[in-house]
């Protein structure tokens, strides 16, 4: 297996899943990053991090009232206590028998499956497969900050594709977005504006 393990699956459905991780694993995942969940041999699910959520509890709320929190106490709460860090992932597609599909997977990952960040090579492989079919999953998720997610994803994918010598990928992705969002002028303008900064 390649990539960094960022946590394990808490709950899942066909369209997305939630990953639990320890606070000391939290350095690696970032909003908009591409992840994968290997299931059986040759079958894995791909997704995009859409949310990173840190729950509180009664002790943390009480510690907030202290004037000063010693380093040992901070680390105790971050490393020893069961601080629930939850990462929301939007399912973008899957790979089966070496073939990548941007359709929803036939079955979701199971509890405690390990989740890995995709390596640049895996990002290139997933984003090059097909004709950007996975973008529609992101655009359909109206509860999420779509513009920010797309910006983060395009930034990551552009860098990986250019490192792999695919200089045209970014332009092709923008063209596909313009096509997909032709009826959402306002949102499209925002995305193009953000994309201009990448």
């Amino acid at each position: 297996m390649s990539g960094i393990e960022i946590g394990r699956l808490l709950r899942s459905g066909t369209t997305g899943f939630v990953v639990g991780c320890r606070v000391n694993q939290l350095d690696a995942p970032s909003l908009g990053a591409l992840v994968r969940v290997p299931l059986t041999e040759g079958y894995q699910v791909y997704g995009l991090i859409t949310d990173i959520h840190i729950e509180d509890d009664s002790l943390v709320r009480q510690l907030i009232t202290a004037e000063d929190v010693p380093e040992e106490v901070l680390r105790d709460n971050r490393e020893n206590r069961n601080v629930p860090v939850e990462i929301g992932v939007l399912t973008l597609g899957y790979e089966e028998g070496g073939r990548i599909s941007h359709l929803l997977p036939p079955r979701p990952p199971l509890s405690l499956d390990a989740i890995y960040l995709c390596t640049p090579e895996e990002v290139v492989a997933f984003t090059s497969a097909g004709r950007f079919g996975y973008l529609r999953h992101i655009l359909q998720d109206e509860d999420k900050p779509v513009e920010e997610l797309l910006a983060a994803h395009l930034r990551q994918a552009k860098a990986a594709q250019e490192d792999a010598g695919n200089e045209d990928w970014f332009e092709a992705a923008l063209s596909e977005l313009i096509t997909l969002m032709r009826d959402e002028y306002q949102q499209l303008m925002t995305i193009l504006s953000v994309a201009g900064e990448i």
Binding site: Q62, L63, T65, A66, V73
Partner: peptide, 18 residues
């Protein structure tokens, strides 16, 4: 006790309880 702010009680005792 100061670590637990407005409700002073030794932090480590609370953690042992948890």
């Amino acid at each position: 006790a100061k670590v637990l702010g407005t409700r002073p009680y030794p932090y480590l005792l609370h953690r042992a309880h948890e």
